[in-house]
Each structure stands twice: as C-alpha cells, then as structure tokens.
Amino acid sequence: MSLSFALLVSGQPCTDQSSLTALRFCQAALDSGHQIYRVFFFNDGVHCANRFTTPPQDEIAVPKQWTNLQKTFDLDLVVCISSALRRGIVDKKEAARYELDGHNLADGFTIGGLGQWVDACQNADRVIRFGGNAQ
C-alpha cells in the first residue's frame, strides 16, 4: 500500500540529528514507492534552509542535501514564514520587503504560512514530526 506523508521538521540541523533523520526518512519512503506530500520546516527546523551553512569539508551540509533531494523528487519543501523571519532565514522577496542586505533561502525551498502545514495535515495519510522537545 502506498501512503502519503506530511513531515514537520523542527530540529536545528547542526545541533540536532532530527533533520538528517527526516532526510533519510524521505529518501527511504520515496524509494519504497510512497509519496511525500510536503515537508514543513518549523521553529529551529528553518535553519535547514540556510544556504550559507558552511560546515568543515568532511561534514555534511544539511541544506545542500535537502536541495539535492528536492531536485531529484520534486519535493514540496516549505519553510514557516514566522519561524524563518525570526531566525534570519529570508528569500529575495522578504529581503526586499524588510530592506535586508542579503537573502539566504536555499534552492528548492519556498517560504509559506502555517496554513500550508494545516493543509498537509488534512491531506496526507500520515503526519510525522522530526525534532523532539529539547529541554
């Protein structure tokens, strides 16, 4: 049976393993013939969309991996606008709106509202969150 999944990623990619786990889950689900309805990046998860992320060469840049996966499978990767703006993740449009001197949203991501997460919860067969409640 093929299922569609909505994923909520709320973990900071450098601090927390959860966003890489989400990435691997996506890959595995798609390889097994399931669909990813949408991946929604929320709270500290929005840092996954920062294309300025520059780890040492022998470490994984999480945003790049999401960008690659998005390209391969045409994934719908949505970054929560209120979480993103608070944390300095902006696309060209928001940078212009707030008169910022740069933008850092990685390729393959779009900025959207919580309504898109509500829509994903309604339309996907399963909802999974990656990123625990760090105390």
Partner: peptide, 26 residues
C-alpha cells in the same frame, strides 16, 4: 503541549500553529 510558557520558543510557536489550524476551520 508539555512546555512551560517561557524558556523555549516552541511553546509560543506551537500555540500559533494551533491558532492557524482553527483559523483554517479545523
């Protein structure tokens, strides 16, 4: 919800998510 109101942003941002769900007639 299981978090105290202050100390981590998730309490407030998750509450905003709940409000959005209600605003979209759920």
């Amino acid at each position: 919800f299981t978090r105290a109101p202050y100390g981590h942003s998730i309490a407030r941002e998750a509450l905003d998510m709940a409000l959005a769900s209600a605003a979209f007639d759920q």
